[in-house]
Design a protein around this nucleic acid. Structure first.
Length: 426
RNA sequence: GGAGGGAUGGCAGAGUGGUUGAAUGCACUAGUCUUGAAAACUAGCAGCCCUUCACGGGGCUCCAGGGUUCGAAUCCCUGUCCCUCCGCCA
């Protein structure tokens, strides 16, 4: 949620931002108009309400002194219903205003490159050389199916499109990856590990910005008012919703391994083969709640934590700074990490690290008090994948494939694979 | 699933129709005292919104939403969550 006071102060800045993000800048004018109406309706209702309160106190005094207050009571009876109507109108105007405001994306940080689409994202750096294979690279789904350890057809039979069975050593590799990521974040990067709910209510999804605008992207659990999490960002970020934190406790660094569920509405026909775009996948998520003055420092750290996993796995990757046209709704700044996939002959997203500044904290009402200061402030929230496990698995399959169809196991994972160094066909 | 109890400020916890936005304690901030700290003492201290250059003024909020009343933390209805007991169950 944007701060309406900042929009009032610098409307042009927010219009430019919205335009750069591919939105309609006139929405800002509409918001300001609604805000004006909101203030007017509040002033009108409160003026009458003040009179009602004042006279009610007079009545209390008169009663105490055993005076007759009937005239005033009758007058207030009438004023009461006027107030009720004015308050109802004011509430409607306010709801409308807040709904519109909740649909406006975050203000981008000044360093975010202006651009219309992902083609204008800015390359930050590349690490590792894409491997030159001495044979024609296969895609991970070919490798997995030839090994007999990745099965999309039977998943389609049991569930439907965009699901998969992992078997045997590939299933274990998935578990090994998750374990390795969690261990690294907890032992080396200082995160606190969580197991979180996999279903959340609407309030939580509003808090992180998925609702109301991106409702169709998440799965709804009929008949409960719950939704499957699209990412543990939702549960971890909302953990302290409606709470007052202490500045001394910042930053919080949370991590959780969780399944993620996405409807992938609107992506029909894209990445239909393989593990790249599934309705269900596993992810190790990182979330920071940071002091506003420190959040960009923390953002760089978080990016480093995600990168360290790829470095350990010796997977080539690139980091790009997303441009205004590609950045997510809640983010003020975002880095994507794209991993090299020989089978696809390209880099594909494996992590996204965002600083949402106070955008989510306003929505979820997560504040903190600074020593010696009276006013509470909103924390800054950051989230990043560390990493998407399914996509890491496919990156390992494609980068470590051998000519004979087997797959080498990265050094750091072998202790999680009972010492094995290779996956072979069953 | 059945029966009962509860939800109040950063925290704990009073308060059952009228100057109660809320006693008290803790925490926090400032001061006195002290070489310094602690203790003690004194004072301050909820949030959000509207208005004002400012001082200030006003409104809302005691889980949420309705209702009764001139007036609700307090009474009534609905919902949510938590706790205890019984049943069932991984």
């Amino acid at each position: 949620m944007l701060d309406i006071k900042r929009i009032e102060e610098e409307p042009q800045k927010f219009k430019d931002n919205l335009k750069n993000r591919g939105g309609d800048s006139s929405e800002i004018d509409r918001i300001l108009e609604l805000n004006k109406k909101r203030k007017e309706s509040i002033a009108e209702a409160e003026e009458k309400k003040a009179e009602l309160n004042r006279v009610s106190k007079e009545i209390a005094l008169m009663k105490k002194n055993k005076e007759d207050a009937n005239d005033k009571i009758m007058a207030m009876r009438e004023l009461g219903s006027t107030v009720k109507n004015l308050e109802k109108t004011a509430a409607e105007v306010k709801d409308n205003f807040e709904m519109q405001l909740a649909g406006i994306p975050n203000l981008c940080h000044d360093s975010v490159p202006v651009g219309a689409s992902e083609d204008e994202n800015k390359l930050v750096h590349r690490v590792g050389e894409p491997k030159k294979l001495s044979f024609a690279a296969k895609t991970h789904d070919e490798i997995g199916e030839q090994l007999g350890l990745l099965d999309f057809d039977r998943a389609a039979k049991v569930t439907g499109a965009r699901f998969a069975f992992l078997r045997g050593q590939v299933a274990r590799l998935e578990r090994a990856l998750a374990q390795f990521m969690l261990d690294t974040h907890v032992e080396e990067h200082g995160y606190e590990e969580f197991v979180t709910p996999y279903m959340v209510n609407e309030k939580a999804l509003f808090g992180t910005g998925q609702f109301p605008k991106f409702k169709e992207d998440v799965f709804h659990i009929e008949p409960l008012p719950y939704h499957l999490i699209p990412t543990a960002e939702v549960t971890l970020t909302n953990y302290f919703a409606d709470e007052m934190l202490s500045a001394d406790d910042l930053p919080y660094m949370f991590t959780a391994f969780s399944p993620c569920f996405r409807s992938e509405a609107g992506s029909h026909g894209r990445d239909t083969k393989g593990l790249i775009r599934q309705h269900q996948f596993h992810k190790v998520e990182m979330v920071h709640l940071a002091h506003p003055d420190k959040s960009y420092e923390m953002h760089d750290k978080m990016l480093g934590h995600a990168e360290s996993i790829l470095k350990s796995l010796e997977l080539p990757y690139e980091v790009v700074a997303l441009c205004t046209g590609d950045i997510g709704f809640s983010a003020a700044k975002c880095y994507d990490i794209n991993v090299w996939l020989p089978g696809q002959d390209t880099y594909r997203e494996i992590s996204s690290c965002s600083n949402c500044e106070d955008f989510q904290a306003r929505r979820a009402n997560i504040r903190f008090k600074e020593k010696g200061e009276k006013k509470p402030k909103y924390v800054h929230t950051l989230n990043g994948s560390g990493l998407a496990v399914g996509r890491t698995l496919l990156a390992v399959l494609e980068n470590y494939q051998q000519e004979d169809g087997s797959v080498l196991i990265p050094e750091v994972l072998r202790k999680y694979m009972n010492g094995k160094d290779k996956i072979v066909a069953i």
